[in-house]
Design a binder for these strands. Sequence first.
DNA 1: TAAGCAACCGCATAAATATGTTAGTCAGGT
DNA 2: ACCTGACTAACATATTTATGCGGTTGCTTA
Lengths: 211, 211
Amino acid sequence: MMTKLLIYEDNPQLREGLTMLINGSDGFEVLAACKNCNNVLEDLETWKPDLILMDIDMPGINGLEGLKKIRQVNSDVKILMLTVFDDNRNVFQAISNGANGYILKKTPPSKLLEYIEEAQSGGAPMTASIATQVLKMFSSMNNEKGEDYNLSDREKQVLQFLVEGYSYKMIANEMFIAIDTVRSHIKKIYEKLHVNSKSEAVAKAFKDKLL
Amino acid sequence: MMTKLLIYEDNPQLREGLTMLINGSDGFEVLAACKNCNNVLEDLETWKPDLILMDIDMPGINGLEGLKKIRQVNSDVKILMLTVFDDNRNVFQAISNGANGYILKKTPPSKLLEYIEEAQSGGAPMTASIATQVLKMFSSMNNEKGEDYNLSDREKQVLQFLVEGYSYKMIANEMFIAIDTVRSHIKKIYEKLHVNSKSEAVAKAFKDKLL
DNA sequence: TAAGCAACCGCATAAATATGTTAGTCAGGT
DNA sequence: ACCTGACTAACATATTTATGCGGTTGCTTA
């Protein structure tokens, strides 16, 4: 069974190299190698590939956008993202948009073919450093409470209002206390959270999920 | 440099097999191979291994609990989880408790050694089918995409700084622009996000995760 | 009973922020 | 050529925030 590939890669050398490598391997066939994603959907229609190698950093429509476009109309074709950096945000974007794998360009050819096979057979190949990123994200997103800044009840209420964008004055009104009292509470909150501005406190509230 | 291993595996055949395999490979040394986790912490103290192979399904204290125990006192030692099934729930448990990798027992010996090396050098090796699970979990839990306020590039940068607690002055310095320009950007941001204060913008940035 | 703490309030001042208005340059598209 | 939008910048003014100090009350606990 022949695995039919489509390649998107703006660098001509790399594009050629990948094509040669893959065409030179049994069981694989490169249908086309494009230098940008401007016509992904048409390409997809004409070639109907089994698997796509998609560079992330490309001029015009970049790899992530290409990925999205494809996934809007087709969730079968396997898509392997290729990139130079194991950039946190891109990894996240890619996998939450349905990429089947995420590998670094510096991956040696033999490994690359292995990865393609894995993806084709339903796996999700990832360079180890990428996998590390993913695991970190994962464990950070279900962190249990993290630190305990032991805010008092009243302080928690105030922080809540801050998060909801209330000004001191509005908080004073809502809580039936003087604005100076609001100040006092907030100063205490800042001390406990080790911050020194409203927006930092808000950010911390979100990050540490103490709302 | 010798990588020192500890193995936890209840099946005697497999335990022996793993030990032989690893001891027979250059650069690896099995310090001990235990049939359960009942004394993990003591074992850890006495052997001080670089890496632990931990079976998930064991009588007594199972692999996941062993993992937790270890991570409570030591976050340096690499821990590779071994299992028969790519069970969804276990994978999640393991990675959110700080496992460095998760591989199937049916992994061929050569691959296994490769994985150990990867883990030892800071990677996060995963059997492809496991990686698939992880990716699925990831994309399923993060399917809700925030609205698009179409902030310009520059505006996104500014918002980023706001979220990180920078003052206008600091942002101006970081971005090499005048403080008044920062103001302009921020005013635009407020319009686009429909807010009218820094902390509201920060809160919205988190809620709609547009960073 | 004294100490500690949360909650309350006030005053003062400096810094930061919000809002408005105006305006130049530049790139891209109609 | 014109228009739009992004990016840049300035000036003015009012409001909000951050920080310092001071204080009273009432409840809990060593």
